Simulated assay, not measured.
Amino acid sequence: MREFYRKSMMFLLMFVLAFSVATVSGVSANADESHIHVLKESEFSTYGANPPGSSASTHDLSTSNYNYQVESVGYRVFTDKWLTGASSMKVTVENWELIEEYGGTNDKITISVCQSGFWGDTCTSKVITGLSKGGSDYVTFSNLDSSTKYYVRFEVPTNSNRYKFNGTISKS
């Protein structure tokens, strides 16, 4: 009986130790400002296939940048979080790459900053053209309300081409 208690206590101690290490690791990973949000255009994706829902978390641009990576897009992807804390927002597109080509325009992306409302989403859009392999560019959006929740939509021409790129959304 004594051996059973000793083994049970050892197991419990190991469990508590493992749980505390996992929790501390999780906290430090979330606190890292260089965290990259992977946005995916897929029916199986939970990050980026649709605009953030009402229960999605919020990223405050006044405290850190929102770094993102798009692995493959043929139409549109969205930020997976609401963005706040900026009256002016800079959206960069870096490392532009055409990964599947079927013809048509291959150097253009439309970036929109959107706000959800009772009557639907209101978006302001800007277009970047002339992107080449490895290229980068940016757009800025002004006159935003820093306390309002926004999301960003990235949209490429619908000609079956697929692209990958990454970048940063920051307060400008």
Rank of each mutant, 00 (worst) to 15 (best):
D32G: 04
N143A: 11
S55K: 00
F118V: 15
G26D: 11
D145N: 07
F4V: 07
R6N: 14
A86V: 14
V113D: 02
E33H: 10
V27M: 08
Q115A: 09
I109R: 00
R2A: 15
T148S: 12
S62M: 12
Y151A: 03
V113Q: 02
T63P: 07
H59A: 13
I111P: 06
V73A: 05
K164T: 09
Y102H: 10
W96G: 09
M14I: 15
S25Y: 15
V152N: 00
S28K: 08
N65V: 12
R162I: 11
V73K: 02
G74A: 04
F44A: 09
M89A: 08
F4H: 06
N50T: 10
S147W: 04
R162K: 13
T148H: 10
G130A: 10
Y151Q: 01
C114I: 05
G130P: 04
S64H: 14
L131P: 02
G134Q: 06
V70R: 03
F44C: 09
T63V: 15
I36P: 03
D107G: 10
S146W: 08
E97M: 07
G134F: 10
D107Y: 09
L83A: 01
T168V: 02
N65S: 14
S136H: 08
N159V: 07
D60K: 03
D32P: 03
A29F: 13
V127M: 01
V16E: 13
I36G: 00
K126L: 07
S172Y: 03
A86F: 12
S62R: 11
N159S: 01
K164I: 00
H35Y: 15
E71M: 11
D137G: 00
V21Y: 08
S34Q: 08
N50K: 10
E43H: 11
G74V: 04
